Structure formats: structure tokens, C-alpha cells
Simulated scan of single mutants.
Amino acid sequence: MRKIFKGLAAALVLVVVLTVLGVGVDGWRLYRNAVEQTGIEQAVEQVRAQEGYTPLDQLPALYPQAVVAVEDRRFYDHNGVDPIAIARAVWVNLRTGSLAEGGSTLTQQLAKNLYFTQEKKFTRKVAEVFTAWDLERRYTKDEILELYINSIYYGEGYYGICSASRGYFGKDPTEMTDYECTLLAGVPNAPSVYAPTVNPDLAAQRQRQVVDSLVDTGCITEQQAQEILAGE
């Protein structure tokens, strides 16, 4: 009986290994096909050529800080993939029996915006990883963050920070207040849920999470947080 169990265990391990290898190979192929059709530099230039593209140094300083704090606080330390975030996502997904958590970094999200669909498949996630590594080899962290901010979806048909700021606040992003920065930074996580024109109460709750993340990462003090939320 023990030999039977050992044989079954070995067979199960083999199946898992072959499945993982298969997904890895398919993900690599998806990545290669994507970048062969549209090169990394070409895809990046398409984003930069869009109307309203806003360089990082023209944004209020708090906005990119808020994005990193709430979305990917180890952004400046990882190489495009965050093992800690992936481990956390795997644990959550195992507990819930879903793919609710992705563990994607800002670089992976940029890769998805440039090349892939929103469909939650392991093959696509692997392709994202290869593309993220490619982006990290070619561009600085600030360039990647700038591209992300200018390409992410903010709900209500708004893509990129300029379109979102004009659409929600009627102003260019250079003119956003700290209150508006923290409100908008929380939207891309779930645009259909956190768009301030759709669910103002949920948008405010998400804004509180953004502000708390800024406090946790030492970007602002608790007093500054209270002033921001009060619109001061």
C-alpha cells in the first residue's frame, strides 16, 4: 500500500511539474509573439505620443508617491516582479479558490496595458512577467512609473492621468490638490467600483486606504493625512 501511495505522489508531482513547465513555455511564446508584432520601444512611444501625456516631473509630487504607496510599495526595490506580493496572492487565492489576487507589480500592470487582455489566465501572467523584465532592462523606474500613470484606466472612459484629471476635476493634472491626488490614486485598482462619479462613498473609503498607505510608508504624517482628507 505504501508503495502505491508513493507512486501516486510521484505521479502527482510529475503532473504538477509538467503543468508548470507547460504554462511557462506558453507564457514565453505569448510574450515573444507580442513583442515581435510590436516592439517594446514602439509600444512605449505609442503611449508617449498620446494627447495629454504628462511627464512625472509635471505632476504634483504627492500623486506618484500615492500610486506607489498603495499599489506597489516595493516598486523601487524589485526587478519587475515582487515575490512577496506573489506569495501573498497565492495564499489568498488558495484560501478563496479563485484568482482574485494577482500580485502584479506596477511594471507587470504596464506590461498588461501595453500588450495583453484583462483575462485572468496563468499563461497571460507568465507573459506579463517576461514583458516586465524586458521593460525593467530598458527603462528606469521613474520612466516605468510615468508610463503606467499615463496608460492605466481610471474609469468612465478615462485612460491616463490627464484624461482622468480633466474628466473628474475639470483641470490638468499639474493643478490637482493633495485631496484630488489621493482620491484619483485609488481608482485604477477597481475603476468600476472606485470611480468617484459612480460610488462616491466607496471612492472615499479607497482614498482613506491611499492616505493610510502614505502614512505607513513615511511619505506624510498622520496630521497631514487628516488635513488631506479634510480637503485642506
Rank of each mutant, 00 (worst) to 15 (best):
N189Y: 07
A190C: 05
A190N: 12
P191M: 03
P191V: 03
P191D: 02
P191Y: 09
P191W: 05
P191S: 05
S192K: 10
S192G: 10
S192E: 12
S192P: 13
V193C: 01
V193Y: 03
V193R: 07
V193T: 04
V193G: 01
Y194P: 04
Y194M: 06
Y194E: 08
Y194I: 10
Y194W: 12
Y194H: 09
A195F: 11
A195H: 08
A195P: 04
A195R: 01
A195W: 03
A195K: 02
P196F: 03
P196W: 01
P196R: 00
P196D: 01
P196K: 00
P196V: 00
P196E: 02
T197E: 14
T197Q: 14
V198A: 03
V198F: 04
V198Y: 11
V198Q: 02
N199E: 09
N199T: 05
N199K: 09
N199S: 07
P200G: 12
P200V: 06
P200C: 08
P200Q: 15
P200S: 04
P200E: 07
P200T: 10
D201S: 04
D201R: 11
D201K: 07
D201H: 03
D201I: 11
L202R: 03
L202A: 08
L202Y: 02
L202H: 00
L202P: 00
L202F: 01
A203N: 11
A203E: 11
A204D: 08
Q205L: 08
Q205W: 09
Q205M: 05
Q205V: 03
R206K: 14
R206G: 05
R206L: 14
R206P: 00
R206D: 05
Q207P: 02
Q207T: 09
R208A: 13
R208H: 13
R208N: 13
R208K: 10
Q209D: 15
Q209V: 04
Q209M: 12
Q209R: 14
V210Y: 01
V210M: 14
V210T: 15
V210R: 07
V210A: 14
V210F: 05
V210K: 08
V211K: 02
D212V: 15
S213I: 09
S213G: 12
S213K: 15
S213L: 13
L214F: 04
L214H: 04
L214P: 13
V215H: 10
V215T: 10
V215N: 15
V215K: 15
V215A: 11
V215W: 13
D216L: 11
D216K: 15
T217C: 07
T217W: 07
T217I: 01
T217E: 12
T217Q: 14
G218S: 07
G218F: 06
G218V: 01
G218A: 09
G218K: 04
G218M: 08
G218R: 00
C219V: 10
C219D: 10
C219T: 10
